[in-house]
Design a protein around this nucleic acid. Structure first.
Lengths: 192, 192
DNA sequence: TTCCAAAATAGAACACGTTTCACTTCTCAT
DNA sequence: ATGAGAAGTGAAACGTGTTCTATTTTGGAA
C-alpha cells in the first residue's frame, strides 16, 4: 500500500471512529488525506473497500498483539473464551469503527467478497490455534494436519461470533451478549 | 398495513426479485405502486424498512406453510435439518429477493432494529419447535416451560444459519454450504 | 351540503457515492 | 535535458436515497 492509500485508510479510520459509517464521507476523506477524490477511487473501488482495508489493518495489529503471548487457559474451552474476549474487546474498544466495519463485512458488496472471506478465515484460524493451544500466528499455513472436528468447531464458533457481532453492531444487544453467545456455544460444543 | 403500503411492499418485492437490491429504486417503487414518493416515506422510514417489511411478509407465509404439517424426522437432529432445509429453500427460491433482504437484515440501520430482532426470534422459535417435534406456530408463546438447553441450541443454530446465509448473500459460498454449516453444527450439538 | 384537517401528490432540492473530464505534474527511458 | 505516458488534481456531473414545499384531493363532522 503506497503512501496515499495509507493516508486514505488512516483518515477513514479516524472519521469512522469519531462518528461512524455515515461520517466517512469520501469528499472529507479525500480532503483530509490531502488527495483528490479521483485518487481515492484509483486506489479503492468503493467506500466499503476502504473500510475493509481498515478492518484488515486493525485485524493484523490484533493478531500481532495476540501472538505476543500464549493464549491463557488449560482447556480448549477456556482458551476459546479467552481468545474471543480478546477479539471482541479489540473491536469494541472503538465501537463506531467496529460498527462501520461490521456493516461493510455484511454488506454483500461483490467487490470485497474475497477480503471478507479472508477475514472469516483469519478468525477461524485464530480460534483453531486457541483450541489447540498453539501460538496464534498471522500467516498460518493450514495443511493436511488439521483435525476435522477442531476445524468444524472453530468454524461454528466463528459463525456464532460473527452473527452476534453483527447483532451488536445493529443495536440488537450489548457487547456482553456477544461473549455470552460464544461461551454458550463453546460450552455445548466441548462437552461432547 | 393499508392498501398503499401493501402495494409499495408488493412492488418492492417484484423489483428485488427481478434485479436485486439496487434495482429497488424508490422512485420506481412509487411509480409502480401508483403512489407519490412522499407517501412511500410516510409509510416507511427507509428503503431498508420496506425490504424488512417484505421479509416479514415472506417469513409469515413461510411459517404458515411450515405449520401445515409436522416437521419430519425421528430425532431432534433430523428435524432441525429438515426445518433448515425448508427455511433455506424458502429463501433461495428467489435469490435476488433473499439477498436484498439479507442485506437489509445485516445493515445495522437503527430504524429496523426491533424488526430484525423479531426475525431472529421467529427463526429461533421455529427451530425450537422443530427440536421438540412440536408444530410450528406463528405466534408461539415462549413461557417458562422452555428448556434452557434446547433454547440455547436453537439460538446457536440460528446464529450459524444467519452467518452462513449472509455469507451466501455476499457471494462467499453457495447455498449448499449454508445447509452444511447448519448440519455440522447440529451434529456436534446433538451428539452430547 | 359545506368545510376543514389529514393525507396524498408532483416535483424541486439536497447529500453523498461514484464517474467523468480536461488539465497539470510526476517519472523515467532515451 | 526531454518527451511520452502514468498518475494526480479540481471540478463538474450523474444517480439515487431522503427531505421539503406548495398544491390538490379526500373523508368525515357540523
Amino acid at each position: 500500500m503506497d503512501d496515499r492509500a495509507k493516508r486514505i485508510v488512516e483518515t477513514a479510520i479516524e472519521l469512522a471512529e469519531r462518528d461512524g459509517f455515515q461520517a466517512v464521507r469520501l469528499r472529507d476523506v479525500a480532503a483530509s488525506a490531502q488527495v483528490a477524490l479521483g485518487t481515492v477511487y484509483k486506489r479503492f473501488a468503493s467506500k466499503e473497500e476502504i473500510l475493509i482495508a481498515a478492518l484488515e489493518q486493525e485485524s493484523e495489529k490484533l493478531v500481532t498483539r495476540l501472538g505476543k503471548k500464549a493464549v491463557p487457559g488449560d482447556t480448549p474451552q477456556e482458551r476459546v473464551r479467552a481468545i474471543f474476549v480478546a477479539i471482541t474487546r479489540g473491536f469494541i474498544r472503538r465501537p463506531n469503527l467496529a460498527k462501520a466495519t461490521a456493516r461493510s463485512l455484511a454488506s454483500g458488496d461483490p467487490n470485497i467478497t474475497e477480503r471478507v472471506a479472508s477475514f472469516h478465515a483469519l478468525i477461524t484460524a485464530v480460534v483453531m490455534a486457541a483450541i489447540r493451544g498453539e501460538p496464534v500466528v498471522a500467516d498460518a499455513e493450514w495443511g493436511g494436519d488439521t483435525d476435522e472436528r477442531e476445524r468444524n468447531i472453530a468454524s461454528i464458533l466463528q459463525n456464532v461470533w460473527f452473527a452476534s457481532f453483527v447483532g451488536w453492531a445493529g443495536g440488537l444487544h450489548d457487547a456482553n451478549r456477544v461473549l455470552e453467545d460464544v461461551d454458550m456455544a463453546a460450552a455445548l460444543l466441548f462437552e461432547g
